[in-house]
Structures are given as C-alpha cells and as structure tokens.
C-alpha cells in the first residue's frame, strides 16, 4: 500500500509538471499580445512593457523563472489587473466555485442515491422505468440548456428566484439545481446498477433465508454493499463538476474561477490563464488520487496494488 501510494504521488507530480510545461509552451505560442492598444504603442514603449513583464528574456529563462517562482507559491501577476498576484485572485474566487460545486454534489448525490435505490428495488416496474427514463434524459441534456430553461421558467416567467447573482440563499437555488440534476442522474444510474447486482448475490438470499424482513435485508445488506462503488464515481464527478461549472457560473454571473478563466482567455492574460489551468489540473489529479486510495481503504476486497480498478 505504502509503495503504491508513493508510486501514485510520483505519477501525480509528473502529470502536473507536464501540465505546467504544456501550458507554459502554449502561452508562448499564443497569437496576439496581452497589451491593450498594442497597435497604438511605439516599438520602444512595447519593448519597455515587455521588459517590465519579463517577456523579453529568452523562453528557457522565462520557463525556469516561472517554475522557480511557482515552487515559492508565486504564479505571477495578472496582466489585466496591474500585476495583482494571480494567487490572490484564485484564493478569492476559488472558494465560490468550490461552494457551488460542493452544494451541487451533496444535493445531487443524496437524491441520486435515493432514486437509484428505489429504482433498483422496484426493478422492471413502472417506478423503475420512470426513473431510468428520467436519468437518461437528465444525463443527456447539457447543463447550460437546463440552466436556460430554469432561468426562463423560474426567473423570467414566474419570478421566484433572482435571474443572476450569488449572495442570498435564493440565488444559489437555480445554479445548484442546474449542476445537481446531472450529478443526480449519473449517480442514480450507477446506484441502480449496483443495487440490482447486489440484490442478486447469494448473501441476500442467505439473509432472507434466515428470516430477516425485507426492509432489514435491503437496508443492512443491500444498500450498504451497493454504496461502496459510488465512491469511485463521486471523485471524478466532483472534479468534473468544479471544472464544468464554468458555463453555469457564466450564465448566472457567479464570481467564481470559471468566469475569471473565460475573461482571462478573451484578454490574453497569460499568468491568469496558466494559474487557472494549473489549479484545474491539480484539482483533477488530486481528486482522482484520493478516490483511488479511498477505494482500497473502504473495500478491502479490491487489491489496490493491482492498479486502477477498471
């Protein structure tokens, strides 16, 4: 186990290093300049600006410089906001994205597990059929379309919720539903499969044979066992939700890193783009790592040293 974790940490670092290098190289290959009104500046002024931001040095020097600063927790300053440190922006905006992601995950996961259990128990009946249809529809419809529908129905037509913003609890409802519905559907689908599989196991028959009531069998034996693999989907899904909430943040004007990212891309704010990309990548890599380790801890039947379970 210890060796496995060490190996995984090694891969994590390599992956992260590759991401950093790739983003750095991508930034250097970008067309356009990060300076506003670049075409109105004289060459001298432009050179002065470049010198100020360290863009006149050879690329390898810039690269080493960047990595060195990064190891010291400095991701550079934003070109658009007068060299204000990127880390400051991220620290300010990331918690908002995280909050949106976590709220959606919690609601989506709980509803998804409940739906999946019901669907699995009533397999083949009308209730199950309804849930399965619903989940396919919810998995398929893109979150931004869902968000647009919700916004139109509940903010424009019936004015229950505010159209945009992120301050009062009421403003949280629509964005959280927009993301949570997809999470709910995926989890429900997965949970149903697991329930059906567990209910077909011999130990369920044993439990019934020794005279346990149906609710006891379902609660004590079926649900508990069926919940284990959910951990594997929750991890990558959290990462996907936090990165994917970009569009929802945009629609509901939530001041998270997603909207910041889009702004940075549009304005060629190199350090900001790199910082956000690296944050996304780090988040993704770490979640997947935690899930892999957790999976081995929760279910001793899985041999972690055998590699990632398929």
């Amino acid at each position: 186990m210890g060796r496995y974790i060490l190996k995984r940490v090694g891969y994590m670092l390599v992956t992260f290093y590759v991401v950093v290098t790739l983003t750095f190289l991508a930034m250097k290959m970008l067309p356009g300049t990060p300076f506003k009104f670049a075409n109105r500046l004289t060459p001298e002024q432009l050179n002065q600006l470049k010198h100020y931001y360290g863009l006149d040095q050879p690329i390898p020097v810039q690269y080493v410089h960047y990595i060195w600063n990064m190891l010291h927790g400095d991701l550079g300053g934003s070109f658009q906001y007068g060299m204000q440190p990127v880390t400051e922006f991220l620290a300010q905006r990331f918690p908002i994205s995280m909050q949106l992601g976590i709220e959606s995950m919690i609601i989506g996961t709980i509803l998804g597990i409940v739906l999946g259990i019901i669907s699995g128990i009533y397999r083949g009946r009308f209730l199950d059929w309804g849930t399965v249809t619903l989940t396919v529809v919810f998995i398929s419809i893109p979150s931004f379309i869902f968000a647009a529908i919700l916004q139109y129905c509940f903010s424009v037509q019936i004015r229950i919720f505010p159209v945009i913003g992120w301050d009062t609890p009421m403003t949280h409802v629509l964005p959280v539903i927009s993301i949570g519905v997809g999470v709910m559907a995926s989890i429900a689908r997965f949970m149903r499969t697991e329930m059906v599989e567990v209910l077909g196991q011999d130990y369920i028959i044993t439990a019934q044979a020794k005279g346990l009531s149906t609710p006891a069998v379902i609660y004590k034996h079926a649900i508990r066992n069926a919940m284990i693999p959910i951990v594997t989907v929750i991890g990558p899904m959290t990462a996907a939700v936090v990165t994917g909430s970009l569009v929802i943040e945009n629609i509901f004007a939530i001041p998270g890193i997603g909207s910041q990212f889009i702004d940075a891309i549009i304005t060629n704010d190199y350090p900001m783009i790199m910082g956000t990309t690296e944050l996304y990548a780090a988040l993704f890599i770490v979640t997947i790592f935690i899930v892999d380790i957790l999976y081995g801890v929760i279910d001793p039947r899985i041999r972690v040293s055998g590699g990632k379970p398929a």
Binding site: Y11, M12, T15, F16, V18, V19, L22, T23, A26, M27, L30, A239, A240, T243, G244, L246, F261, I265, I273, T277, Y280, A281, F284, I285, I288
Partner: peptide, 13 residues
C-alpha cells in the same frame, strides 16, 4: 491526468 477541458482550451488558445 489532464482534464480534457484544459487540453481543449490550450489547443484553442
């Protein structure tokens, strides 16, 4: 290990 969103955005840049 790299989120596909990051790949795609880098390429688009």
């Amino acid at each position: 290990g790299i989120p596909s969103l990051v790949w795609i955005i880098l390429l688009i840049l």
